[in-house]
Structures are given as structure tokens and as C-alpha cells.
Design a protein around this nucleic acid. Structure first.
Lengths: 193, 193
DNA sequence: TACGATACGGAGGCTACCTCCGCTTTTTCA
DNA sequence: TGAAAAAGCGGAGGTAGCCTCCGTATCGTA
């Protein structure tokens, strides 16, 4: 039998020394701002500059762009996972699943290029994203199984397929919320038994 | 009233002078090879090197990576469009649409990263991609309208939405043919009336 | 306060992008 | 046919981003 996955608290290791911690926070703040303004392909040197920190400091703490993305978006990602439980309580099985997927798309669209990085990363093996995947999986499985049990979703569907499909929606550069929702409507119709 | 789009022959301007034409062909061949081996993010200098041509020559002919992609994939793209008419003749309305979408996904998957570039480009405005879009649109519209008339597809759906959704399927880096087909099954189910 | 541990920062090596322009090849036409 | 004009060639070099390395500075602790 397969063990039920347990939610793993997503967190990034904030350094111990005071100066290091200060720079860490400056960097994450600068990155969040820069990513929001210019997308996640802002140069790392620009981010270090904004943070008033040397490029070496940035690289010591965040060995690559993904590490920085992780730190910037931990909270948001966690909250996407958590939201599933709220929907499960308040809505019927299918509607809860639909609402969760819609909130996922809505979030991804608002963060533009993050969506791409994140969805691509769902296939990768970083420790962070593994934890993330476990959490997303547990949340999503809960909703999906309920909807299957309810008879509103076809039983042979797999969560990861659905997530991939929904993730794909958000990959288009020029996707607006309306279009994204129309696409999601098609997917939701496709899930129904 | 809106005029029916007419298929535009997709072609790239092969240069007039003999030496230029030779280099053009060398570059396209080298690029095709390199893209296949290492993905579409192969450096342009590497491609020039493979072609045995100066980097300046490459840039004179292909001002950017997309221009080169266009030249490499014209034929394939055109054949994706053309295939629609074959399916329309041989299959029932819904099956023709399904087959066309499946062939699109299959093609995209086999070309890996091209899919991403191409789908992103569907939202752009280069002359080439406009022509491409007109052709895809005409082909797709034919199939979609037939399926709507037939009552097998919901009448309110829009072609571009469907194409975006199907394009999204192919964006995941680590997508294999099986998974892609499963995702497409969901989409197809979602189209049905 | 003194000293080991930790962190800083930016110079510099590397690679890719792209432009510019002196030189070469091809084409044209008298 | 041969010389001028047109078209094309190619690579040096400027710019920018990635990332590493290591001499110097700061922090925490005893």
C-alpha cells in the first residue's frame, strides 16, 4: 500500500547571522519587486543592485534563479495548496475542485511568467519542488477523489494530468483572465463523468 | 461581413545571389540539425560555425532566432495546416477535428521546444506568423464548424481557445506522447456537446 | 577583547547576443 | 570581356548576463 503523503511545511532556510539575514530579506524583497515589474527573467545582477548587495552575496545565498523564485513565492505557493481545504469544506465536490483549479489559474495569470517556471518545475526534482508537489498532490487528490466518489468526475482521470493541463493554460505569454477562464471551462467540461 | 481567409503560401525569402543562397541553405540545414540535437536554444554562433559561415552572415539573413525557426519549420507548419483538409475528407466531423488536434500535438511533442516557441508566437505579430495563423485558422475553422454543425461540439466554443489549450499541452518540458494524448482526451471530452 | 566562523563584494573569466564596416564575390552592362 | 556597381561576407569588438573565487570585513562568542 502507498502511504498517504503528509503536508510538508514549505520554507526556505533563512541564514543565522544577522547581516546575512538582513541581506537575505533585502534580496527577496528586491527580487519580488523586480519579478513583478519586469518578469522573472530580470537579471540577477539587477536584483543584487536593487537590494544594495554584491552579486557574490546573491549567489552565495541563491545558487540559481530558481532558488530565488522559490524564496519569493513560498508563501503564495503554500496558500494555493491550503486553499484546497477551504474549498473542500464549503463547496460540493465538483465545485470545490473547479474553484481550486480556477484559483490556481487566477493566481498563475496574475504572476505571469512565474506560472511557466512553476509548471515546468513540477517536473523537476529540487527538494523544494518535491515538497511543493507533495503538498499540491495531497490537496488536489483530496478534491479529486471526492469528486470521483461523488460521480461527478470520470474515475480514470489522474491528478497530475489535470494539473499539467491546467498549468498549460497559464503558459501562454499573452493570456488574459477571461480567456484563461474560457479554457478552464473546456477542461472542466472534459473532467465530467 | 467578414471575408473568408484565404490560405497564404508560407515561404521565406530565399536570397537572389548564388553565394547568398548557398549560405542560406547551409544555415537552415545547420540550424535544423542543431535544433534537433540540442533544442531551439542552441547558440546562433554555434549554428553559424556548423554551417561554416560567419556570424555576420547569419544575422544578415536571420535577424533573430525566430526568423531562423521560421525558415527551419515552414514546411512542417504548412503540412500541419494542410493535413486538416485530408482529415475533413476521410473522417466524420468530430473525428476529423480530433485527429487534426492529435496530429498537432504529436508533431509538437516530437519537435520539443519548438512547440513552446510556436505556441507563444501564435500571439505575436510577425508577418510570417500572421500568415501562419490565417492558415491554421482557416483549416481549423473548417473542422470546427463542421463539428458544430454536426452537433458534436458545443457551438459557443472558439477555435483560438481550443488551439491555445492544445498548445498548452505541449509546453511542458517533460511531456511524453502518452501523457500528451491523455491530456488531449480530456480536452476532446470537454469539447463535446 | 580577541579570535574563529561566517559573510561580503566585486573583479574577472566565460559565453552569448548583435552591430559595424573593410574586404570579397557576383552580377550587370557597355 | 572587363570593369564598375551591387550584394554579400565575416569576424572583431562592444554589451550584457552568468557564475566563481578569494582577499577583506563583520559577527558571535567566550
Amino acid at each position: 500500500m502507498t502511504s498517504t503523503p503528509t503536508p510538508i511545511p514549505l520554507q526556505t532556510a533563512r541564514p543565522a547571522r544577522a547581516d546575512a539575514r538582513r541581506n537575505y530579506d533585502l534580496l527577496v524583497a528586491a527580487a519580488r519587486e523586480a519579478f513583478a515589474e519586469h518578469g522573472t527573467d530580470t537579471s540577477l545582477e539587477e536584483i543584487a543592485r536593487r537590494a544594495g548587495v554584491g552579486i557574490g552575496t546573491l549567489y552565495r545565498r541563491f545558487p540559481n534563479r530558481t532558488a530565488l523564485l522559490e524564496a519569493v513565492y513560498v508563501d503564495e505557493i503554500q496558500s494555493v495548496c491550503d486553499r484546497a481545504y477551504g474549498f473542500a469544506e464549503k463547496l460540493g465536490p465538483f465545485d470545490a475542485l473547479a474553484a481550486w483549479l480556477r484559483s490556481f489559474v487566477g493566481y498563475s495569470i496574475s504572476k505571469k511568467s512565474l506560472a511557466g517556471e512553476l509548471t515546468v518545475a513540477l517536473g523537476k526534482n529540487s527538494e523544494f519542488f518535491t515538497a511543493c508537489k507533495v503538498n499540491v498532490r495531497e490537496a488536489g487528490e483530496l478534491l479529486l477523489d471526492a469528486a470521483k466518489a461523488d460521480g461527478s468526475v470520470r474515475p480514470e482521470l489522474e491528478l497530475m494530468d489535470i494539473l499539467r493541463l491546467v498549468g498549460g493554460i497559464t503558459m501562454g505569454r499573452e493570456m488574459d483572465a477571461d480567456q484563461a477562464n474560457r479554457l478552464l471551462d473546456i477542461v472542466l467540461a472534459g473532467l465530467k463523468a
